[in-house]
């Protein structure tokens, strides 16, 4: 579903991403781990075609994001680190707006159903987003992905700033989405959550994907050791 082939991004002499090769299947959760500046966000932005690659290509469901951005983005949903939907709109209005921008029209009950599926109470759905916590905003974004029927989800540091309960709820929702066949690429610092939800984790450093590990074959402690080892190398 999501595929990177020799994907690179340079800013002058600075290499933000180097020769990334990656393939994420439908229903798979792939977590990118790495320090700040490792190239995680750059990878996500390249898949979104927010920036153009210097080399290589990113493909969504077989389509190049550069050659057919219209169709590639039709398959994607995105949750940035700073989750900001429109403050002055309610949750349901935000969902309706983004769904319509994506060309989807849903009735009010359908919209409420999507919000309910991601755990946003009906009462909150009619409150302005300005009163929401970050977790609630993320739920609105997940509802947008559901309403869009996105086949791939890109998340940038989704659990940063969430309390443990909210983070746990969110990770469970990601698991549910993956079970529905959504391919998920998540950039995170949170090793524990990455191992919990991810099928595979990739460790990045200075624009390079150093190692990819299936989470089923590694304990949380070993993953942390492996991560720190790469960071200290």
């Amino acid at each position: 579903m999501l595929e990177a082939k020799n994907l690179s991004k340079n800013y002058g002499h600075y290499t933000a991403l180097s020769q990334l090769n990656l393939s994420i299947e439908a229903g798979e959760v792939f977590c990118l781990l790495g320090a700040n500046g490792a190239g995680k966000t750059t990878t996500i932005h390249l898949f979104l075609n927010f920036i153009e690659p210097s080399e290589g290509e990113a493909r969504v469901n077989g389509r190049s994001v550069v050659d057919a951005p219209h169709l590639a983005r039709a398959e994607l949903a995105y949750i940035p680190e700073r989750v900001n939907v429109y403050d002055q709109l309610t949750g349901v209005e935000n969902l309706d707006f983004f769904a319509q921008l994506g060309g989807q029209r849903h009735g009010r009950s359908e919209l409420l159903d999507y919000l309910s599926q991601v755990g946003l109470p009906a009462r909150a759905a009619y409150q302005r987003v300005a009163t929401y916590s970050k977790g609630m905003r993320q739920k609105v974004c997940l509802a947008i992905a559901l309403a869009k029927q996105a086949r791939a989800l890109l998340l940038d540091e989704p659990t940063s700033g969430l309390d443990p309960k909210a983070a746990n709820e969110f990770i469970q929702l990601l698991g549910d989405l993956a079970e529905r066949g959504v391919a998920i690429l998540m950039a995170t610092h949170d090793l524990f959550r990455a191992r919990e939800v991810g099928h595979r984790v990739g460790i990045m450093k200075q624009g390079h994907l150093l190692e990819t590990v299936p989470t089923s074959s590694i304990s949380a402690t070993d993953l942390e050791k492996l991560y720190l080892q790469h960071m200290h190398d």
Partner: peptide, 13 residues
């Protein structure tokens, strides 16, 4: 600044 531009762009609009 608010970050909604990225979400709009990601819709493919």
């Amino acid at each position: 600044r608010r970050g909604t531009l990225d979400l709009v762009a990601a819709t493919g609009s």
